[in-house]
C-alpha cells in the first residue's frame, strides 16, 4: 500500500511539551513535503538552551519516514478516547498522507501502564510506539548531521 502512495503529499509534525516552573519546555520536529526536517528542543532546566536545527533530507529519507508511518497504521486511529492534554503535558501528532490529514493530541504518556489503563489501549499503543520510532529516527538524523546530542 505504501508503494502506490509514494508520490502523494506527506507532512509530519510531532510536539511534546509542558509549561512549568522552567517555562515552556518542549521538543518538536517536522518533516515537510519539500524534504526539510526541522527540529526544536527547548529545555530551560539549569541553563536555558534552545536548539533549533533544520536540514534538507533526500526523498529516500522522507520515503522511509513515510514507510514507518504507513506500517504503524496510525491513520486508522482516532484520538477521541485518548487522555486529554493536561498540566503535566501535551503531545501533538499531525500527519498528512495521501488524502488523509490527522491531528491528534493527548497527554504525556509516562509508560505502557498509562497506555494499558486508558480507554483506547490499542490505539494509544500504536501512537506510543510510533512516536518512539519517529523520535529515534529524527535523533539519529540530527545527531549525525550536527553532532549534537538531541536530548
Amino acid at each position: 500500500m505504501g508503494e502506490m502512495a509514494e508520490n502523494d503529499e506527506f507532512y509530519l509534525r510531532y510536539y511534546v511539551g509542558h509549561k512549568g516552573k522552567f517555562g515552556h519546555e518542549f521538543l518538536e520536529f517536522e518533516f515537510r513535503p519539500d524534504g526539510k526536517l526541522r527540529y526544536a528542543n527547548n529545555s530551560n532546566y539549569k541553563n536555558d538552551t534552545m536548539i533549533r536545527k533544520e536540514v534538507f533530507l533526500t526523498p529516500s529519507v522522507l520515503k522511509e519516514c513515510r514507510r514507518i508511518v504507513a506500517d504503524s497504521e496510525i491513520m486508522k486511529e482516532d484520538d477521541n478516547n485518548w487522555p486529554e492534554p493536561d498540566r503535566v503535558g501535551r503531545q501533538e501528532l499531525e500527519i498528512v498522507m495521501g488524502n488523509e490529514h490527522i491531528s491528534f493530541t493527548t497527554s504525556k504518556i509516562g509508560s505502557l501502564m498509562d497506555v494499558q489503563t486508558s480507554n483506547d489501549p490499542e490505539g494509544l499503543r500504536i501512537f506510543y510506539y510510533l512516536v518512539q520510532d519517529l523520535k529515534c529516527f529524527v535523533f539519529s538524523l540530527i545527531s549525525l548531521h550536527f553532532k549534537i546530542k538531541p536530548i
Partner: peptide, 17 residues
Amino acid sequence: SSASKKIKGRGFREETA
C-alpha cells in the same frame, strides 16, 4: 489542498494551540 482531505483529531479544534 487540505480542503479535500479527510481530517480527523482533536488538534483541529484548538485555535490557541
